[in-house]
Structures are given as C-alpha cells and as structure tokens.
C-alpha cells in the first residue's frame, strides 16, 4: 500500500466526467480530497491523495491522464502568464527565491523557473499587470 499526493488540473470539458468515482470503483483506490474547485465555466483543480497498491495507483493515474486531466508534477498552484507579463520587474524584490528573475540585463526580460518557485504567493499582489496568480485564488 502506498499514498500519493496529487494536484490535478482540469480543462473545461473534462469537468463533467466522473473521474473520482472511477478511481474508487474501477481501481479500488481510497481517495481523500483536500481542496477542489470545479466549475463548468473555467479550469478546475483538485488536491487529493490516493491510497492503494502501487500497481493500482499507477493504473489509476494512467486512466486520469487518458481522460484529459493534467497532473501537476510540481504540485504548485502558482501560475505566471508570460503573455500578460510586461517584464516591468516589480515582482523581483518580492520573490524570496528568485524564481522570477532576469537572465539578461541587456534586455531586462523576466523569466520564471517553476522548479525554484516555492508557491509562496509573494509576487501575486505585487504584479500590477495581473500576470501572477494562483489556481487556488480567484
């Protein structure tokens, strides 16, 4: 037996499929949902853990992915929208780990490294342009 923590994100049209039901019914997994937001209008998410034999967990995860659900391996809720970002740089002094940073000081372009991000949300209220957000906040 094993327990695995997952952050799932759903696109609009996946929302209606009975994914959790199938994890229980078809794969015999124990599901614990901690936090979820699912609506028909927008992207949804679910934070859960699943417990069961490793083989069944893997099969369950394969099933979820086949249904069009994305497993966020980084398990982070923070989202940076590059198309909205102007590279002003105001967020930089509010990111404690330099996940948002400048690589080339000639162009002053902002880049984001998801691996470093600690999901602290420090940048969100400090982005005047609304490029920083979290799927846990509306």
């Amino acid at each position: 037996m094993e327990t695995r923590k997952l952050l799932l994100t759903f696109v609009k049209n996946v929302v209606e499929r009975p994914i959790v039901y199938n994890l229980v019914k078809e794969f015999d997994l124990v599901i614990n949902i901690y936090r979820a937001s699912i609506s028909e209008e927008e992207e949804g998410y679910m934070v859960l853990d699943i417990t069961g034999p490793t083989k069944m967990i893997d099969a369950g995860i394969n099933f979820i992915v086949s249904q069009g659900v994305t497993i966020d391996n980084a398990q982070k809720s923070f989202r940076w929208d590059e198309s909205v970002c102007t590279s002003c740089s105001n967020c930089l002094t509010h990111c404690p780990v330099n996940a948002l940073h400048i690589e080339d000081r000639k162009t002053m372009k902002i880049v984001f490294d998801q691996n470093i991000c600690i999901d602290c949300m420090g940048c969100i209220p400090n982005c005047p342009f609304g490029a920083c957000g979290s799927i846990f906040q509306d």
Partner: peptide
C-alpha cells in the same frame, strides 16, 4: 538594496 522597475525596459526596446 535590491531594485525593481515599474516601467518595462524590454517593452521600451
């Protein structure tokens, strides 16, 4: 002291 800008140099470019 760490610095940051409100205007965008990369947009200016």
């Amino acid at each position: 002291i760490e610095t940051a800008s409100l205007s965008s140099y990369s947009m200016a470019l």
